[in-house]
Each structure stands twice: as structure tokens, then as C-alpha cells.
Design a binder for these strands. Structure first.
Lengths: 212, 212, 212, 212
DNA sequence: TATGAATGAGATTTCATTCAT
DNA sequence: GATGAATGAAATCTCATTCAT
């Protein structure tokens, strides 16, 4: 059996490997520091032997990096799916803010992704490599948000004169604002209830055609 | 000799400890993963004995956390200083974007701080404790940016109708996202040259009185 | 693999663990100070990897405590066995004195046990816990000697009016006298040859029915 | 200043050294394992600098060995003193049992001595050397008990037909076993209240002339 | 393919001892 | 003589990885 790092099709992942991915996701959601995760913890949770992990991966780093990449992709696939069901940018924006709140509860995907994209740990480098590869690229936040914004432009809701890449930037930074405010609640004493409408208004003001 | 964790006055740090702080800073600037830093690497660089590290700190985590806290404070002290010399918000904003670009080159302080404030590693928990304490609090980004924005409001440059905290978060997340876009170029697939003027404009549009 | 500290059945001890027990026993018999025994010394002697020791035990202290408890139990099992073959208390007493001499040659069991029962080192506390647990209790000296004396009483050889616990005390203290005399030969200049009949006589005088 | 190991006269011990001896004694009485005592703990307690310890001793082992030897001698000097005040062996015996019980409470001198005389730790070897030297020999238990028993014989209270040395050992081991029974109650499973009168009687029966 | 006992390199940490002041 | 900051040898213990079954 070839290693998982060579596997392109996300739907052919063997059940034992899915078990390991699930174990990693759970651990991170429980707030475990990524650097303190042990191979034996993963395999114990997955109900498989420790040696089995090495049938599918070469190193511990790869296990965790693949698990994370998988998780991130699934999350954005899901977000992409539900975004598509909404008909207006306003609804899509509300949905994204809702999801941002949810993610915070799981202390997971978004923020973790931010780290992955910016730090220099071994994990992050592996993740970045992996996320840049074919089957993942399609669901990178830039792409997902890009499609949403593109739709808005095409429907005439959003400004046509801004480069799409800036609009993506703008959207992400607003979501980040909201996420930071929620995450650092205790540290910075900010009221998310007050923030949310301001953030919404800010984006709409900046990106929407009708507000021009 | 009392441990450094009990030392409040940042100017009384013994030279050997400063040497260790310097060593940690260099390592991180060189892109070394924080989790792979060894005590012996730090002490070797600092030109002191390994045991000496434990005269001043109880654990490796404390060494690195204190080094980081020190570095972050010095950096924001510096930024605070140069921001004060500028007379308009526009100039201050340009300065911050300049510094954000510089930080990227040093892969360091600002971003590292964001990680520290948001992940669940042992380091981060220690750092957060430390940064919450008296001598550090004054130079936390929220305070520094808060003062900048407050000044802009008082000079009549910035909008009076937005909560200051919202403005702070908005500014921070714009900078952060810019940093992220620069750092993870391949993932973001955007061009900093294109982005920067738009970001400037976006921030001014949102926060400035005269542009309303 | 469960740790040895949870293992109740003394006959299920894995061979590598027996090797470690043997190594500890040898070291002590060679007169090595118990506090100067290193894990690597034990595993080197046992011909196993250092890490293997920690597959079976959590700490060095546990390794040595278990090795000692095992050794002590085996010794008293053995003594119990050969005592049972003797038909009179007199013979049993002679046997015990013979064994006391032998033990001295191995500088081991009896005296080591005495230390274990009386000092406050980490080892001793662990040993005491362990020796108080089910599978060991049966072969504690108090039990073994208790059975011998009980037998003597039942056969009508020994006095019925003394509490058994005092008889045990008396027997042990006599053996201790003999052991001390042998051990401290050089220090106290006593002739074991002269002592032995006196000790025998003393016990018989005190405990035997016919001498009443 | 010559090292303490060369000092013969126990009354010329400098005050800082007495402070260290006192510190060691206290630590042991508090139940601290002798192998876990640190030089810094001793000097901190004695209120002196760590370097000072090395003005008077060459190694940590010497510090503790000398402290113990000193303490043991003082204890037996004291016991010798109060034994001399008693007029009958019976009273002296009761006194010794009282002291044995007290020692248990202080977990100290007598028993510690026994360990010192019988184990193979570095401390014990040093102690044995030291206790064998001139100024200590006089107050070794064998000598002290020897004088007591000799007095009993001379007063006609004790048997003349037993070798004095046998009587000494017999007495010591009775006391020791009593001590052991008290210390390791759970292992011995006997009641000191029950034991003590029987022990007294047993010793008197064996050693006293009139009870013959 | 799946396993998990065995491994050992390498990390952190301790603390007796030194020596410049 | 007294000090205590500095040292580094040496110990314990971890855990990713291997490999015989």
C-alpha cells in the first residue's frame, strides 16, 4: 500500500486512516497542543496498532499534517456547499459570521489555518505543501471566498471596480476581526454583540454596489 | 537569586539573561521552529553554561516565554515610539504597513504575538500569563493602536461615531491579513504591490471623518 | 503492556523483567550502594535496551523496589519451604541460624529487609507498600515464623501461654542477634562459634514447654 | 582552617559547623531521606553560604557523615549519662525501652546507627570509619550497654555465667526488634502495649540472676 | 497487512563543586 | 574566611520508529 502522502483522491482514504484523522481532529478540538500529540495517542484513539500508522505514513509529522489538511478541506467543502445555497451576498455574509462563531466553539479550523499559513513549524510547512497540491487547492479559502464574491459581482450586488483579490482580502480580514473579538473575549473585553453589525455594515459599505 | 519570572522591572535583567533572550530572538528570526529550540542551543549561543539557564528559570518553556514576552514588549515600545512622531493618521498607517512588511522579513514579533494569543501550546499559555502582567500590558497592541486611533479621533481625522475598540480590531485584522497575504503568497495568490494601496484606501474610507 | 506494579501473579513476570530483577539482586549482592544503582547499569546487565525498562516500570525507584520485593518474597518462600520439611522446632531453629549465616554471605535479604522496614527512603516506602499487598503478605517473616511457632505449639513443643506475636518477636530478635554478631565481626570482635549455642539455648529456654 | 575530618576534639567545633550539624539532624528527624539532602539545604538552614561548607569539608558525604557521627555520639553520651543515674538493671531496662519508643518518634539516632553499621552506602562507610576513631569509640552502644550490663553483674543482679558480649548483643537486638515492631507496625502486626511487658520479662528472665 | 515490544538517541534537569570577589 | 553565581557532568525519562511475528 502506497503512503497517504501520495494519495490524490480524498475518497479512497482507508478506514484506518480516517480513524487516525478523526483522532487528530478530536485531540485538537479538545485543545491539545499540536506539538504534544503522540503517535500512540492517535493510534490508541483510532483503535489500531502503533505500527499500522507507519504502514500509511512515514513520520508523525505527516500523519498530523495530512489529518489537518483533510480536516481543513472538508470544512471548506462544507462551507462552500452551504454558501452556494444562499442567494444574496448579505445572506452569505451572515452565514460566514455564523460559521465563524461555530468554529470558535471548536477552536479549530479557521484559526488553526491561520497559524498554518504563517508559522515556521515543521507541521505548517508540510501542511502548506499539501494544501497547495491539486485536490486541495480548489477549496482553499481564497478560492471559496473568491467564488462567493464573484457571484455577488455577477449578480450586480457587489462593486465591479475592485480587484477580486482585494475583495477576498477584505472579506477575510473582517472575518478575522470578528473571530479575534470572539476568541480573545476575556483578554480584550469586547462585546461580540456590538461588533457583529458594525462588521457587517463595514463590509457592505465597502464592497456593495448599491452603497456606492 | 530569584527567578526571572518574578522580576518585574524590565531594566534589571542580568546580562546573561539578556544574552539568552537575544539568542532566542535570533533563532526565531532565523525561522527555527519554536518547538525545536533546545536549551543547549540557547546557552551555547549566549556563551554561558547550560546550568546557568536554570539559575534564572525553572523550565525551558519559561525561558522561551520570557524571551518572547520581552521581545514583544520591546518591539511594541519601539512601534509606539515611532508612531508618536507622526502627525497624521495617514502617515501612521503607512508606517504600520511598512513595519508589517518588515516584520514579515523578520518573521517575527507581530505575528508571533498573534499565535501566542490564540493557540493552546504550553508556550502560549505562559506568554499570555506574562503579557497580562503589569509591565507588559501598556504596550500590548490593543493599547498601542488604541492610542493611535484615539489621537486620530481627537485631531478630528477619524470618525467619532465608531466604538474605539471596533476601530482597533478592524485595524489589527487588516494588518494581520496583509501580513498573512504576504507570508503565504502561494496560498493567497495575491500581489502585495496591488494590495497595499487598496488596503490603505479601504481603511481610510472606513475610519476617516473627511472621507465620509 | 501493563506496568509490573499492577502485576499480581509473580509467575507471569516477563523474562526481560526477571533479567532486571536478577541484575538488581546481583548488584546488591556485590555490595553496591542501592542509591548509586543506575537504570543503565541494570539494563546493560540484563542485556536489554534502556527504554525497555520503562515499558515495564514508570520510574527507577519502582524497578528497584519491585526487584527487591520479588527477591525478598522468593527468599522467604524458599525458607518457608525448607522449614516445613523439618519435624521439630529445634531442627527448624538450627536451620534458621544456618540460613542466617548464609544470608550474611550474600549480604542481602534479611538485613536489607530490616532496612526496608525502618528507614524513610523512597525505596523503602515503595517496598513497604508492595510487601503489604496481597501476594507478598503471605511470605512476610511474621507470617512464616508465625506458622513455624504455631506448629511448635501444636506439637506441644512450645509454650502455650505466650502470645504468638511475642514468640515471633523473640525469635526474630534472636536471629537478629546472631546476624549482627556475624555481620559486625570486625567491628565488635565477637566469636560466632561461642554465640550460636547461647542463642539457641536462650530461645529454647524461653519458648519451650519442657523447659518451663 | 583544617577540615573537620581532621578535628579530634568535639568541643572545638566552630559555630558554623555546629549549625550545619544541627541542620542535618533536623532534616533527618523530619523524615527526609538521607540521600536526598542537598548541600544548599544544609547551608540555607544553617544560615551560611554554600561555599562556606567547603571551607570545612571536602565533600557533601563528609558533611553528613560528620554530622551523623556527632549526633550519634551526643545521643549515646546522653543515654550513658541517664543510665548511670539508675540504680538497678530493671530501671535501666525500662529507661532504654522508653528511649527506644522516643527514638521512634524522632525516627533517628539509634536506628540510623544500625543502618550505618550495616549497609554499604557511601555515607555508612564514612561513618563507620569515623565512629571507629578514638573520641567516638567510648560511646558506641556496645560500650555503653557493656558498662550497664557489667554494673548489673557486679551488683549481683545479672548472671555471671554468660559472656558479657552475648548479653550486650542480646539486649541490643531485643531493643532493635522492639523498635522495628513499632516502626513497621503494619508489617509486624503487633501491639506495642502487649509486647513491652513481655519483652521486659523475657530479658529479665534470661539475664537476671535472681530469676534463674 | 497489522501489530506492539523493543529500542536508543537525545532531551531536560539537577546539584556538588569551584573560584573570583 | 565567606560568599553565591556559574558550571557541566551525569542522571532520568520520552517517544518516534523499527521489525520479527
Amino acid at each position: 500500500m502506497g503512503k497517504m502522502t501520495d494519495l490524490e483522491d480524498i475518497h479512497l482514504i482507508p478506514p484506518k486512516v480516517l480513524g487516525m484523522y478523526q483522532a487528530v481532529a478530536e485531540l485538537l478540538e479538545e485543545g491539545v497542543d499540536i506539538n504534544s500529540i503522540r503517535v500512540s495517542t492517535i493510534t490508541d484513539r483510532a483503535g489500531i496498532g502503533k505500527g499500522t500508522a507507519y504502514e500509511y505514513f512515514d513520520t508523525k509529522e505527516e500523519i498530523i499534517a495530512c489529518a489537518l489538511a483533510y480536516r481543513i478541506q472538508r470544512t471548506f467543502e462544507y462551507i462552500d456547499g452551504i454558501l452556494t445555497e444562499k442567494n444574496s451576498f448579505q445572506d452569505q455574509l451572515e452565514l460566514l459570521l455564523d460559521e465563524t462563531e461555530k468554529q470558535e466553539k471548536k477552536k479549530f479550523c479557521f484559526w488553526r489555518l491561520v497559524h498554518m499559513l504563517t508559522d515556521s513549524s515543521g507541521f505548517s510547512q508540510l501542511i502548506r505543501q499539501r494544501m497547495a497540491s491539486e485536490p486541495f487547492a480548489e477549496y482553499l479559502p481564497v478560492k471559496v471566498f473568491g467564488r462567493v464574491l464573484q457571484g455577488g459581482v455577477e449578480r450586480g450586488e457587489l462593486r465591479k471596480d475592485l480587484p477580486l483579490e482585494y475583495m477576498v482580502y477584505s472579506l477575510i480580514s473582517r472575518l478575522l476581526t470578528y473571530f479575534m473579538a470572539i476568541t480573545a473575549k476575556d483578554c480584550f473585553q469586547v462585546d461580540a454583540e456590538v461588533l457583529r453589525p458594525l462588521i457587517c455594515q463595514g463590509i457592505m459599505d465597502e464592497l456593495c454596489e448599491k452603497n456606492k
